[in-house]
Write a protein that binds this DNA or RNA. Structure first.
Lengths: 126, 126
DNA sequence: TGAGGTACTCACCCACGGGTAAGTACGTCG
DNA sequence: CGACGTACTTACCCGTGGGTGAGTACCTCA
């Protein structure tokens, strides 16, 4: 599966953290859940324009296995599943903050376009 | 080249930072250069057991393009090249520190083996 | 009646990140 | 004379991360 050789021996802490954050949408999911607190599957999908359902589920499952997100299923007739961050997820987000700041500074430095969610939606959904 | 679609539009700062750190050995190179200050090519290769020369060069070139490392060539008869971190590289490392701490904590939490350089050498060079 | 929303699963495909191995030009050491 | 060390370059191969698209079971609304 995608959970190839995860939890492998780590050379350093960055390794261990990257292992958990690796994945095209993981940081965005983290951010989304951190920002909104609790989100349903379809809400997340809409919040991450361009993500495929397969990847979203796959990433959510991995992050659940890694103890970053909590998955609450409501056995209702229209299915309802709520995702939220565990305390480990929150602490990871906190640890990620300086990196985000650095990235933002760098983006400004090199003059890269910073794209809003709507623009991404426009670009990735022609 | 490997510089596929880098510097692409970023959704958030984490994106921009991950773009620069993405690569199996980038964080290790960063750590190595940060730890030793200045390193020659062969020293780096020995410090990162298991890395192929191709990947090491490729990563170093990309990090140089990204303004993270400085490459100093001495036109001597046995070729000599020294790599060191730029101030941006140093600041990235600083921003990476909390993530490293989080990863270390997590590695301890899940009881993952933390491997020393020598052990890695033993494992990856049978 | 059928279109749409919920949360998925499954099968297939392809690009690319990374590994392996060899070649290069020059010099020194044994 | 050949092995070894420096710092690379080049060619080739393969695994997998991620994308596409369809299918499922149930319910609601127009």
């Amino acid at each position: 599966m995608a959970a190839s050789a995860r939890r492998g021996p780590y050379v350093c802490g960055i390794d261990a953290a990257m292992d958990v954050v690796a994945g095209k949408w993981k940081p965005l999911i983290l951010w989304e859940l951190h920002h909104y607190g609790t989100r349903r599957f379809a809400q997340l999908r809409r919040g991450l324009p361009g993500v495929s359902e397969k990847m979203l589920i796959q990433h959510l499952r991995e992050m659940e296995e890694d103890g970053l997100v909590h998955r609450e299923v409501y056995p209702e007739v229209p299915p309802k599943v709520e995702y939220s961050l565990t305390e480990h997820g929150v602490s990871l987000n906190t640890a990620l903050a300086p990196l985000g700041a650095w990235g933002t500074a760098r983006a400004g430095r090199i003059g890269a376009e910073r794209v809003t969610v709507d623009e991404v939606a426009a670009v990735r959904r022609p």
